[in-house]
Amino acid sequence: MFLAAGYIVGHVGDGNFHALIAINNEKELHEVKHLADDMAQYALDVGGTCTGEHGIGLGKRHLLEKELGEVGIDVMKQLKRALDPKNIMNPGKVLVGV
């Protein structure tokens, strides 16, 4: 375990916050990424969301299917294909392989 300086910002009253944690090396970076995954997984476990008001980030997209399920992801892919048939808007960002 390591100790690091950090801040929490956001509109925490609705459960949406952003943790900013200062790191000093690659080992701490790995630990902070693991911590972020644990925090997002906990949010899902208690009925919350792993996304923010502005959508899912690249660092959490692997958790999106856990939140929305296979059907939810399929609906998102169908909408993406319908609205962006040439895949020019953020290609490969969230719905990889659309």
Score class of each variant (00 low, 15 high):
4 A>P: 04
6 G>D: 00
8 I>L: 15
8 I>M: 13
9 V>P: 00
11 H>K: 13
12 V>P: 01
13 G>I: 12
14 D>M: 08
14 D>H: 12
14 D>Y: 06
15 G>M: 01
17 F>I: 01
18 H>Y: 02
21 I>C: 10
22 A>D: 15
23 I>E: 07
24 N>W: 09
25 N>F: 07
25 N>G: 12
26 E>R: 12
26 E>H: 15
27 K>F: 09
29 L>D: 15
31 E>Y: 04
32 V>F: 10
32 V>N: 09
35 L>H: 12
36 A>T: 06
37 D>P: 01
38 D>L: 14
38 D>H: 10
39 M>H: 09
43 A>Q: 12
43 A>R: 11
44 L>V: 02
45 D>M: 11
46 V>G: 04
48 G>N: 04
51 T>N: 11
51 T>H: 14
53 E>Y: 08
56 I>H: 06
57 G>T: 00
58 L>S: 13
58 L>K: 07
60 K>G: 01
62 H>D: 12
63 L>Y: 02
64 L>D: 05
64 L>H: 05
67 E>H: 10
67 E>I: 08
68 L>S: 08
72 G>P: 13
73 I>N: 15
74 D>Q: 07
74 D>Y: 03
75 V>R: 08
77 K>L: 06
77 K>D: 01
78 Q>C: 05
80 K>F: 03
80 K>A: 06
81 R>V: 11
81 R>E: 04
83 L>I: 08
84 D>I: 13
85 P>I: 02
86 K>E: 13
86 K>N: 15
86 K>M: 13
90 N>F: 08
90 N>H: 11
91 P>A: 07
92 G>H: 02
93 K>W: 03
93 K>A: 05
94 V>I: 13
94 V>C: 15
95 L>D: 02
96 V>A: 10
97 G>D: 11
98 V>F: 09
